[in-house]
Design a protein around this nucleic acid. Structure first.
Ligand SMILES: [Mn+2]
Ligand SMILES: [Mn+2]
Ligand SMILES: [Zn+2]
Ligand SMILES: [Zn+2]
Lengths: 146, 146
DNA sequence: CTCTTTATTGCAAATAATTTGCAATTGCAT
DNA sequence: ATGCAATTGCAAATTATTTGCAATAAAGAG
C-alpha cells in the first residue's frame, strides 16, 4: 500500500539536482521515508539526533527547504503550529485535522480536485498547487447505537 | 453588493461580549469594515496610525485576536507570509492566490462545500471550519485571441 | 459631572519559528 | 591522495507575535 521510495532514488535525485549526498541528508531522508506522520522541524531533529547526535536543527531546516524546492517533500502549515513535513512521493491528498487531538487524517476527492480546476479556469487561472484543510471533531456517536 | 455592517453593530457585539469600546478598537473596526482586501497586522497598523498616530502594533495584534475569538474577523495564513485578516461578516468564501502578483481572489463553490461535508462525515467527523486555498498564475491567453 | 474600579493601552522585553554569517569540515571530482 | 567548493554546526539575527507592567481611560455609581 505504501509507495516504496528507496533512499537510493532520492540520492540520485539530489545528485541530478546538483546537491551532495551528505550524512545529515541521508539520515533525514531515511527518517522522512520511514515516517508515516507529519513531523515538524523539531521532531525531525529529535529523530535525526537519535541516529546521529551531531546533526543540528539548522541543518534540518536547511535540508527541508532544499527538499521542498526539488519537490521531494511537502510543507504544511496547519492552524497555529509550526511547519510540518511529509515526503511528496505518495499521491496527492488533502488533510482533515482533529482539533481535539491534533490527529491528521488524509483523504482525497477527485471530484473536489476537478471542481477546483474548473473554478480556477473560470477565473482565468492555472492552479500551481493548493491546500484543502478540514478542521473538525469526531462526530458524537449516533444515539441508539451500542 | 457589499454587505453593510455598521460599526455600531460591532460595538454592540463587543459590549455584549463584555469588552469596552475604546478608541483604538473603534478605529480598527472602522478600517476592517472599509477594507476590501486582506491586510496583515502591519498594514492594519499603518492604516490605523494614519488616523491615530498613538495606536500601537501590540494593540492591533491584541485586537485581532479578540475580534477573531468573538467571530468578527477571519484570520488567514497564506503560504509564507504573516497572518492576514478580513471581516467575517460577508458570506463564506475561499481564496485563490495569484503566486505571481500576490492578488487574492475570492470564490465560493457550494458543491465543494457539500463534498467536504460528505468526506468529513464519512470519516466520522463534523467540520468546525476549513480552508481551501488555490495558488496559481494567470492562464496564458488562448492563442488565436486578439 | 466626579469618583472608583478595572479593562485596556503603549512600550519594551520575551517568545517561537526559522534563517543566516562564518569558520571548520567534508564530499567529490581530479 | 589533493584541492576546492558545498555543507555543516553554532551562535547570532530575523520575523511574527505575545506578554509584563505601569500609566491611562472606559463605564457604572452616585
Ligand atoms: Mn499528508
Ligand atoms: Mn476573503
Ligand atoms: Zn487536493
Ligand atoms: Zn469553503
Amino acid at each position: 500500500m505504501t509507495t516504496p521510495i528507496l533512499i537510493a532514488n532520492y540520492e540520485e535525485l539530489l545528485r541530478k539536482a546538483g546537491f551532495r549526498i551528505t550524512r545529515p541528508r541521508k539520515i533525514i531522508l531515511t527518517i522522512l521515508t520511514e515516517s508515516e506522520d507529519h513531523p515538524d522541524a523539531i521532531e525531525l531533529f529529535r529523530r535525526a539526533s537519535s541516529i546521529d547526535k551531531s546533526i543540528s536543527l539548522s541543518t534540518v531546516y536547511r535540508t527541508m527547504k532544499m527538499l521542498e524546492e526539488i519537490g521531494v517533500i511537502h510543507r504544511h502549515a496547519f492552524d497555529g503550529g509550526p511547519a510540518r513535513f511529509e515526503q511528496a512521493s505518495d499521491s496527492h491528498h488533502d488533510h482533515l485535522i482533529d482539533i481535539e487531538t491534533g490527529d491528521v487524517i488524509e483523504f482525497h476527492s477527485e471530484k473536489i480536485e476537478e471542481l477546483q480546476e474548473e473554478i480556477a479556469r473560470a477565473l482565468g487561472y492555472d492552479i500551481v498547487h493548493h491546500r484543502l484543510e478540514l478542521y473538525g471533531r469526531k462526530r458524537a456517536p449516533k444515539k441508539g447505537a451500542r
